[in-house]
Design a protein around this nucleic acid. Sequence first.
DNA 1: AAACAGCGTTGCATATTACGAAACACGAAG
DNA 2: CTTCGTGTTTCGTAATATGCAACGCTGTTT
Lengths: 254, 254
Amino acid sequence: MENNLVKSVDRALTIIELLGQKKEGYGVTELAQKIGLHKSSVFRILSTMMHHQVVEQDPGTGKYKLGYRVLDLAFTLLDSMDLRKEALPYLTELEQETNEVVHLVVIDQGQVVYIEKLEGTQTLRMHSRVGHRAPVHCTAVGKAIMAHLPVREINRIIDEQGLPRHTESTITDREQLMAELDQVKQQGFALDLEENEPGITCIGAPIFDHQGRVVAAVSVSGASMRMTEDNMDKIREKLLDIAGKISSRLGYKR
Amino acid sequence: MENNLVKSVDRALTIIELLGQKKEGYGVTELAQKIGLHKSSVFRILSTMMHHQVVEQDPGTGKYKLGYRVLDLAFTLLDSMDLRKEALPYLTELEQETNEVVHLVVIDQGQVVYIEKLEGTQTLRMHSRVGHRAPVHCTAVGKAIMAHLPVREINRIIDEQGLPRHTESTITDREQLMAELDQVKQQGFALDLEENEPGITCIGAPIFDHQGRVVAAVSVSGASMRMTEDNMDKIREKLLDIAGKISSRLGYKR
DNA sequence: AAACAGCGTTGCATATTACGAAACACGAAG
DNA sequence: CTTCGTGTTTCGTAATATGCAACGCTGTTT
């Protein structure tokens, strides 16, 4: 279907992606050079996007940047998510009971997208951010979801995304990952033992919808030094309870 | 320059806006009817946007919706904002000292856009949401910004946005609003005495950049019954202090 | 079970649009 | 003051987007 795209729309969206990558924005000529189009054409596409307020021109520098309308769209999308709305009270409960960082993610195009993050009370600096993505093979939430997908889809994701190493502990071997996912499926939760970020340990559990499909995952993350076996046991118990409650809210029947 | 837009890009963005308005999404034919285009044309535009992941097709219903890529873009935009980054510690401080709802906004196209919101510890349900917009004439943050704009721009905003009534207390008369803005400018802060939402009182202060231009505003909001004169005095003092600090961080010199 | 209706999707000829080139205006640098 | 490079505008033409017809599929009706 790729040969059936609308070329100007494709170009416009490419420009939006470029603008998203550079905080100080781009000039017309710069964009034209990057995407191989004449600057007058780029100018007209930018004008169209300005008209829709997804792009704006910085009055000081003359550069073009993403406009605030993008925030409108994104937060409307976030606010429209039943999952997130239903989950929020439970995530707050989980945060209060564990005092650690709590995440809610969905899977999209073979990656996890964070749609909620509660910071906990500990000072933990981790890279996860709402709206952004992370790999599935080396995150607790990613593995919690993957373990409940059809094998065909698991293989497709691995083919597309690869198994890039993030830390010394990252699983980079396909067979090893498949064995790990078998275990995750059996035990009902996944662990990230410093596989995504050094010094951080996470435990994640899948969330199912009313049709029994895995649609999301929730996790608790902490500094590895705080994640003692005893503490992990407590967290796992609360996490599985909360994940079960959220799934129930979504109509899942065990 | 409206007669110089790229038509297909314009249509694509119109489709995106429509998709943002309906949580359960739209079908091809439905969209075609709404925007007056043949369904095969709409289909190709949607395919192009799917390719860029700003749109996705719900596998269950077949309907088209906004894709998660929109979240990527929006949060990248939020995270790239120096203002928000610099302001965050101060907003947290203000929240802790007042225990009320704290907002940070910018002005865009004659409206305020919330780019940060801290919930406070009181149970206050108000409509403000990060990413969304509010009018300038009946919000504390809006008036705090407006008061420091050139009169020409104030008039342009009023012409474009009007002065719609939100509550019994909303200022809907242009002269009255101008007088109010004069006072706001002199005293350095703005009040929203149940002008935007019934039962809610806000106090807002402008934030200036290194060139002395007003670029944002910060506010504290609470239930009117809690906003006693004594309490308001305390909050105002902290708010003005915090707004000054944030302005200084942005290079503003008084 | 068969027929029907409507939707999403595809291929193709044509109408419409987007494009590049040239020119202009403006601001910054030398 | 001159030169250079960028952003912006206009116009003729090449390229693209469009609508139409048809197809495949699914759900509904008979």
